[in-house]
Design a protein around this nucleic acid. Structure first.
Lengths: 188, 188
DNA sequence: CTGCTTAGCCTAAGCCTATTAGGTAGACGC
DNA sequence: GCGTCTACCTAATAGGCTTAGGCTAAGCAG
């Protein structure tokens, strides 16, 4: 019985791939073990269990999403930054539906590593909103508005919620325009 | 062994209650059967299986949600109607988190009953948007914008996505204002 | 090279799901 | 009372997660 030389990184890689290809619910330890050429109990040497795998997928997704958002926002400001960030958000979710789904299960209470990763992603949005010169709590509310809109769109789109044969790209553009226009009358 | 006189209605009632109280993933046939004083296989006389139970919860949720939205929109127009409908949407999701979660799994392809129930809920939003005098496809895009925003907010809120100690009611008000202001410059 | 330790992988087993097959018994029409 | 329907049952299959315990390959000390 040859050794595979697995480590937790490879396990999470495989899990994220399965999630993206066949859906998050397809990420079972049996399936994961099979894809790695190993028996399910062997996975416990690398990950703590099924929940830990899902959390690790979410954590990886958060890191990647944050990087995508930062790359999109870099060098841009105002409505242009908002649009670019929004598009990057949607593209990430479409390219990695399984990771995005994993990310919807929020951090467990007290899981500070997970909480901080989520915060990092949110802070990109916060930076993007600088152009709107919102003050204090209004900025935080605005971030929630943006997050809600983006997450809602992406989530409905992924779940087949947009059944009509109507251009979804156009709907997304309208969403961004609505946000940009509605966030503040003082916006540029 | 006394008969309980179950029917599928009671089974779905119990399933929806479990979902709201302990989360959708707590709706197992074992748990459901136990709550009804019956063994799991007996449930198959009333429902087709686990998937069918989840679908039935979603269907019930859609019906109830549609009714709530209609009640909120009735006798109102324009931004007031939008605000009332949005509040009703959020309140339903908060009062029935399990049913709302069930509803996020969209209709299976070809499940026309489910698709029509979803359409009915969406049409309330469509009616609410009449005040914005949007033409043709713009109306449909606007409905998607509203749905995205509402669903996103409610979904993040339910998943603990709003971690900061910041008033969520106020955030929701800002969301509604943003939508109302941004939907169209021609809005009332 | 020999022998010890570590750690990766295994099988076996327990307990939880969902589901199917087939039996029992209460309730209703005649 | 008799037959039938059906609500419920037990038993069993299949597959999920997880733990316990054993085997062995790999790496290191001497």
């Amino acid at each position: 019985m040859p050794r595979r030389g697995l480590d937790s990184r490879q396990v999470i890689d495989a899990a994220a791939s399965i999630a993206d290809r066949d859906g998050l619910e397809a990420v079972t330890l049996a399936r994961l073990a099979h894809s790695l050429g190993v028996r399910p109990p062997s996975l416990y040497h690398h990950v703590a269990g099924h929940d830990a795998v899902l959390r690790a997928i979410a954590l990886r997704g958060l890191g990647e999403l944050t990087a995508c958002l930062q790359a999109a926002a870099l060098g841009r400001a105002g409505p242009e930054a908002l649009a670019a960030t929004a598009v990057a958000y949607r593209e990430y979710a479409r390219a990695h539906p399984g990771r995005y789904a994993a990310l919807q299960r929020g951090p467990a209470p007290g899981d500070s590593e997970h909480e901080e990763a989520a915060l990092a992603a949110v802070q990109v949005l916060s930076a993007v909103l600088r152009g709107w010169r919102l003050e204090g709590e209004e900025m935080l509310h605005a971030v929630r508005v943006i997050r809600s809109a983006l997450h809602g769109f992406v989530s409905l789109e992924a779940g087949g919620g947009f059944a009509l044969p109507l251009d979804r790209d156009r709907s997304f553009e309208r969403l961004i325009e609505t946000l940009a226009a509605g966030l503040s009358p003082a916006a540029g």
